[in-house]
């Protein structure tokens, strides 16, 4: 099992989708993050409770269509970045 992360509830964020990128205003930190897919989706998946990268990919596959090969590694890398900026936290 990989590192299990949790995220703040959606009310802690304000998300604005623009042309190519998404903006996230994170209320607890007062910081703005400019992100692209699948970061908003990963955060969405964490609203149903803490999960590791594999579980997040499983949840994503229920709602989105994509090639799962390499997806766990990619999601794990995004989670590490999200941890560094404080949008997710290890449980």
């Amino acid at each position: 099992m990989g590192i299990v992360y949790r995220a703040d509830p959606p009310s802690a964020r304000c998300l604005v989708a623009l042309d190519a990128l998404d903006l996230i205003y994170h209320r607890p930190s007062g910081m703005t993050h400019i992100v692209s897919e699948p970061v908003p989706q990963i955060l969405d998946m964490l609203t149903n409770g803490p999960a590791d990268a594999e579980a997040i990919v499983v949840r994503l596959l229920e709602q989105h269509d994509f090639d799962p090969e390499g997806a766990v590694e990619a999601v794990a890398a995004r989670l590490a970045e999200l941890e560094a900026i404080g949008l997710v936290e290890r449980t």
Binding site: C14, V16, L18, L23, Y25, R27, G30, T32
Partner: peptide, 16 residues
């Protein structure tokens, strides 16, 4: 940064 969420709202509306 110093103005926080009101600045985020105003600027995201402006560019949209």
């Amino acid at each position: 940064v110093a103005m926080g969420e009101p600045a985020f709202d105003a600027l995201s509306v402006l560019v949209r």
